[in-house]
Amino acid sequence: MYNPQLNAQGQLQHLLSIEGLPKRLLIDILDTAESFVGVAEREVKKVPLLRGKTVCNIFFENSTRTRTTFEIAAKRLSADVLNLNVSTSSQSKGETILDTVNNLIAMHADMFVVRHQQSGAAHFIAQHVPPHISVINAGDGRHAHPTQGLLDVFTIRKYKPEMHNLRVAIVGDVLHSRVARSEIHALTTLGVPEIRVIAPRTLLPTDVEKLGVQVYHDMAQGLKDVDVVMMLRLQNERMAGALLPSTQEFFQTFGLTPERLALAKPDAIVMHPGPMNRGVEIDSAVADGKQSVILPQVTYGIAVRMAVMAILAGGNAA
């Protein structure tokens, strides 16, 4: 089947979504990331793999955190980095997405890291760049956030290497979450046998079961005996659309508290893509507790993004 992420040789040309990514490529990214974890601990935190290349962060939607991790990842690979916050500049002047992209192509950028509020925006840009340019999706609407999905499975693999024997629960606003979709695809690709989603019906996409997950509306049942709890961020805007009555009730019913976490396996790990809403989806005692791997996720996120960039640069150079 046609896959817009791969070139004719089956190498990674763009990273747009985890869906459709062959397992061998996914493992390749994770293994490469492993080799970059140590770079940050060296005195000189740099490798010269992207020297002379220009990485352009195009953020049509604001995000300091994700943009920063991509920036650090590119700089550790010795690339030149250009940050563009389009939400505050050209788009408000009526420039189209393609105008913006074509301008950056004319400036000889080699790699685009793109975030956009519309699902499919990264695919759209990838269709309209010349073949020597790679596009990395840093989050498009509700569709995908593949580097987040990769860093999440990288973190899980670190703590729970037996992926074939895991029970994972994803909790919260799956409907609006590109992170959840990428996590689900990454986990299923790596052969995790049981993935649960726990949320009220209003926060689950239609036919979510068809993504290969089991649906729970009750934390006590859903968390029972799981190895990994992946929390999702709940946006405050969700209260406006009659999706939930209040953040308080959400915390009462779906918030991760120490008591609820006790239902999971005793060595279960707790993850969150950040930024966290303490007291809305997660209790501080859990977020800062000994089962939390939320900060290691951030650290690994840089290594994973370095790996993606290095593989894309290598694929394009070959």
């Binding site: 509700r142 569709h143 239609t206």
Partner: peptide
Amino acid sequence: DGEVASRLGLKGIP
């Protein structure tokens, strides 16, 4: 509003 929209993260019309 079905499997495809859910996968692609597009807002569905039931």
